[in-house]
């Protein structure tokens, strides 16, 4: 049965959380992981929607460190108060 956007977003969120500061994940990394995890139950289009939901809800943010990644919101090292 096809996975819902919410279920995929949750699974993506967990991946991002687990990766923490150890590994930076790109949107395509998340999509590929979902396809690996759920097989035919997901496709690239629904993964795109799930990423959109994760970002719009503020649970994750885009970051840029030489390339764009998806991470949990956090205070960046360079920031001044």
């Amino acid at each position: 049965m096809a996975k819902s956007v919410e279920e995929i977003a949750e699974a993506m969120f967990n991946l991002v959380k687990e990766a923490g500061s150890q590994k930076k994940l790109k949107p395509m990394d998340l999509t590929k992981s979902m396809i690996q995890m759920f097989g035919d139950e997901v496709d690239k289009k629904i993964c795109k929607e799930a990423i959109k939901q994760l970002i719009n809800s503020g649970r994750c943010v885009y970051t840029y460190f030489g390339g764009s990644f998806i991470e949990l919101p956090h205070r960046e090292g360079a920031a001044n108060d």
């Binding site: 970002i55 719009n56 503020g58 943010v61 885009y62 970051t63 840029y64 460190f65 764009s68 991470e71 919101p73 956090h74 960046e76 360079a78 920031a79």
Partner: peptide, 12 residues
Amino acid sequence: HGGIVGVMGYGG
């Protein structure tokens, strides 16, 4: 260089 600041929902 900062890598996080932005506006809600946008990545660029």
